[in-house]
Write a protein that binds this DNA or RNA. Structure first.
Lengths: 248, 248
DNA sequence: CCAATACTCCGTACACTGTTCGAGCAGGCC
DNA sequence: GGCCTGCTCGAACAGTGTACGGAGTATTGG
């Protein structure tokens, strides 16, 4: 982690914005406009295609200009991420008990990632912005009255959130594969299956996989896993012991 | 997903290797050497710093040479990922029942990611190689005798695997933050906390977070979540109903 | 009212990146 | 023995993030 003395600068930008200067010419843009433009580019062509030059071009300014608004590209991405979190409804304002609310935000978080896949590509979670703070605070409060203290509640929130984040790449890969077709009009899945059938493993090498009729989709695995996870949390809250089932 | 007509080429490379040519000069290297060198670079400086030129330099060949072994950088990364999976012990060879074995590979997978953080940065799961296949086959067989069919077993495997993958970035960020110190010798956490105390949110804005004595570490959240998830799976296997605890 | 100052804007430049092209040449096949 | 495949790799292309320094502008101190 080399040149991270900007840590304070980035955090300051996230929490307090730019602050208006005393001298010099008036600014042509706002940070919000900059972040908006960057989000549009990312929405169109993904984070990989988000270059400073391209964002600048969309705003009609020179590339170097952006560096008077934002110290570097990473900071811009951090701003984009926190802005996105701010657009999501707060968990504790949802209807229902802790389970309904938690399940609701988890499912909607997944839906959000599927709708805006570029969010996945921003994985730098070092900078915690105000919207992330507010969201976490709200998610913790969902467990008020369950007997869990705040630390335990945060543990649940992190576990569920981690569950979502872990499944997102698989679900998105599945989404993309569905859309993809090769020059002959075959889907990704059928293309891959065709390959595996002809030039892949010899039959009998992977019996368990072969014997599987319809492999579960990534979405199904996500939803089943979420239900199991929440079942486990429910056990924890009710204080019951898990049933120690068949250790076959 | 533009120029993916190489899909077959990449899969062929993963499953069947290069195949020896009939004419021309002898090859200077093997794909294994190439992948090894790339993994060394990634181990040292991460995937971002893994450039074709740098790998080539380490092998003492020209950069363009690599393209006769591998169609592009993405394929090289896919080979690295599958090779890594091949170095992990197969789940069904571990001791214990389904729960012990599943917990064991989940914990070890997390440990592996922490030891080799570059693995996280390879997120392209489109190409399924032979080692990934073998691992999945083995993980499914762990549930033989539990009553779950293969599809349900794979769902559990995907859920647990997703749980691990989702927590990895947070755990790694925490690891890095622990190592990091600013010019004044302060840790990342204390630097961030110092900032939040002085220029962060005004007191009382986030009551739930403020009232939390020791926030849980990412590792703790991972392990607690894993236990809950497995509790839920245990309910599913034993056929019991979850206890529908307090919907406060 | 004028200069000093602090600030925005941005052309240019540097050190990189992945990948393609084409020349040169090695070596197995007919 | 010759042919021709196919490995090797210098050079080039179109990009990238970001530092630098000059030009111009608004505010403030004198």
């Amino acid at each position: 982690m080399g040149a991270d003395e900007d840590a304070g600068v980035v955090l300051d930008l996230l929490w307090n914005g730019l602050g208006r200067p005393q001298r010099g010419p008036r600014r042509q843009l706002t940070v919000e406009q900059l972040v908006d433009a960057a989000m549009q580019v990312a929405e169109q062509d993904g984070v990989r295609a988000l270059s400073m030059r391209r964002v600048a071009a969309r705003l009609g300014v020179g590339a170097a200009t952006l560096y008077t608004y934002v110290p570097n590209r990473a900071a811009l991405l951090a701003l984009m991420a926190d802005t996105s979190i701010g657009r999501v409804p707060l968990p504790h304002t949802r209807p229902g008990g802790w389970r309904e609310r938690t399940e609701a935000w988890a499912v909607e978080e997944m839906a959000g990632f599927r709708e805006h896949p570029w969010l996945v590509e921003i994985d730098d979670s070092r900078f915690v912005g105000p919207h992330a703070f507010a969201w976490t605070d709200s998610a913790i409060r969902v467990f008020d009255g369950t007997g869990l203290d705040h630390a335990a509640a945060l543990t649940v929130v992190q576990a569920v959130s981690g569950h979502v984040r872990g499944h997102v790449p698989l679900v998105i890969a599945e989404d993309r594969a569905r859309e993809w077709t090769d020059p002959d009009g075959r889907s990704w899945r059928s293309a891959q299956e065709a390959f595996l059938a002809t030039r892949g493993p010899e039959p009998g090498r992977f019996p368990a996989i072969e014997a599987m009729a319809g492999p579960p989709t990534a979405v199904a695995a996500f939803e089943a896993g979420l239900a199991w996870l929440l079942d486990g949390v429910e056990l924890r809250i009710s204080g019951a012991r898990p049933p120690r089932a068949g250790t076959a």
